[in-house]
Amino acid sequence: MLNHTTLIIIITVIISLAAWQNKTLFNRLIFYPPAVSRGQWDRFVTHGFIHADSMHLLFNMFTLYFFGRVIEGLYRPFVFGYGFVLFYVFAIVVAMIPSYIKNKDNASYLSLGASGGVSAVLFAFILIAPWESIYLFAIVPIPAIVFAIAYVAYSIYANKRGGSNINHLAHLWGGAFGVVATIVLRPQILPHFFGALLNPFG
């Protein structure tokens, strides 16, 4: 039986590949604020299952595979065993809400990719293992908590600077959702996090 992380990856890869072959499908799934305002609210979810190119898809799915399997056990007991799936989908939706509010009248704004959900998964993992090594570009090991601080700082900076095709705002809100949802559903994770943080060699 496939775990839910692998199932999400398979579905995302299939939909991304299909969208690359079908421009009409691609345009229907991408997050486009004027279309959302006209009632196509499903775009809050569908944009998270398509990607700009193969590297975009590979990076997000590699990250999801590595960290999703670790935290899936935290959420699986909820909602008849589908807690992790709902956590991931809600993260994609919540991560996009600030961008929608900011750009709802912007006819040139587009956004796509699983980064909101992946950021939620990554930050939930950091609560569990703050000193675990995260490999930047799959090569450079960085303690998870250090990566989190640098990631947030860079995302805030890049979002304020603008001029990028990357939705840094979704990264921030996805990560925030991952932290808050994990603490709400598993309150014991907070003392665990601080205990682990204060005992890096424990």
Rank of each mutant, 00 (worst) to 15 (best):
H4P: 09
T6A: 08
L7D: 11
I10R: 05
I11F: 05
T12L: 05
T12G: 04
V13L: 15
L17E: 06
A19G: 02
N22T: 13
L25H: 06
F26A: 15
R28F: 11
I30V: 13
P33D: 13
A35K: 15
R38A: 15
G39V: 05
W41V: 15
D42Q: 15
F44C: 11
V45L: 15
V45Q: 06
H47I: 14
I50L: 14
H51G: 12
L57N: 04
L57A: 04
L57T: 03
L57P: 04
L58A: 08
F59E: 05
M61I: 08
T63P: 00
Y65E: 10
F66N: 06
F67M: 15
G68M: 01
R69K: 12
I71F: 03
I71D: 04
E72C: 05
G73F: 07
L74C: 02
Y75S: 08
R76T: 06
P77K: 01
V79L: 13
V79T: 07
F80I: 07
F84T: 05
V85T: 10
V85I: 14
V85N: 07
L86R: 00
V89C: 08
A91W: 11
V93L: 10
V94D: 00
V94Y: 01
M96W: 01
I97D: 11
I97A: 14
P98K: 03
P98F: 02
S99H: 01
Y100W: 15
Y100R: 10
I101W: 11
N103F: 04
N103P: 02
K104Y: 12
K104H: 05
N106W: 09
A107D: 07
Y109Q: 09
S111H: 06
L112W: 01
G116I: 04
G116C: 04
G117Y: 00
V118M: 01
S119W: 00
S119E: 01
A120L: 13
I126P: 07
I126E: 04
I128H: 03
Y135I: 09
L136Y: 06
I139P: 07
I139F: 14
P141E: 10
A144F: 03
F147L: 10
I149S: 09
S155D: 06
I156L: 14
A158K: 12
N159V: 00
K160A: 09
K160S: 14
K160V: 13
R161T: 14
G162E: 07
G162F: 08
S164R: 11
A170N: 04
G178E: 02
G178F: 00
V179S: 01
T182G: 05
V184P: 10
L185Y: 04
R186G: 05
R186L: 14
P187W: 09
Q188V: 12
Q188E: 15
Q188H: 12
I189W: 07
I189A: 07
P191R: 05
H192Y: 13
G195M: 12
L197M: 11
L198I: 09
N199M: 09
P200D: 02
F201V: 10
F201P: 07
G202C: 09
